[in-house]
Simulated scan of single mutants.
Amino acid sequence: MTSQALIRPAWTPATIALMIGGFMIFWPLGLAMLAYILWGDRLEGFRRDVGRSTDRFMGSMRRTGMGQPFATQTGNVAFDDWREKELARLDAERRRLHDAEAEFASYARELRRAKDQEEFDRFMAERRNRRDDGPIVDGQPA
């Protein structure tokens, strides 16, 4: 979400007005708006976690031999075989994308660590150079 959005999970005049209007019209609407204001920024992470949990659960069901519990056989063997192959291919593609996402997250984390290390080293070098200039009294060089 961009910080320029009119209705975003924050205490803006628009969200406060919607919350008050929601309480006046029907109290669960006001309560829902209050929850959005307080915890709306966590919704994206929550949705991603639920998706991953669902993928793991369905994958474990396939591995245990239960198949797809909500899929029905059409009676056309050729179509059912094709569908199973496509679903297996899509599952492999999903796993490959998930691995690439994890690999990129690790790469980005390593870049941030390297940048932080570089900034810290620069700070320490500047601090060392400052100390070499002489003693510091009351925050000023003496």
Rank of each mutant, 00 (worst) to 15 (best):
Q4N: 05
R8P: 06
A10P: 06
A14N: 00
A17I: 08
L18N: 11
I20H: 00
I20F: 13
M24F: 09
P28A: 05
L29M: 04
L29A: 12
A32Y: 01
L34D: 03
Y36C: 01
D41Q: 13
D41H: 14
D41F: 04
E44R: 04
R48S: 02
V50L: 04
G51P: 01
D55G: 12
R56K: 07
F57M: 13
M58N: 12
G59A: 06
M61P: 02
R62T: 05
R62N: 11
T64K: 00
G65M: 02
M66C: 07
M66R: 12
G67W: 06
Q68V: 08
P69L: 15
T74V: 06
G75R: 12
V77R: 15
F79K: 01
F79R: 03
D80W: 10
D81T: 00
W82G: 09
E84M: 08
R89W: 04
L90Q: 14
L90S: 06
A92Y: 10
D99G: 05
A102D: 07
E103F: 00
A105C: 01
A105P: 00
A105R: 13
A108T: 15
E110F: 06
L111P: 03
R112A: 06
A114G: 04
A114W: 05
K115E: 13
E118G: 14
F120H: 06
R122N: 13
M124I: 15
R127L: 13
R127Q: 14
R127K: 13
R128V: 12
R128G: 08
R128K: 14
N129Q: 15
N129C: 01
N129K: 14
R130S: 15
R130K: 15
R130Y: 11
R131N: 08
D132W: 03
G134K: 05
G134L: 04
P135S: 07
Q140A: 07
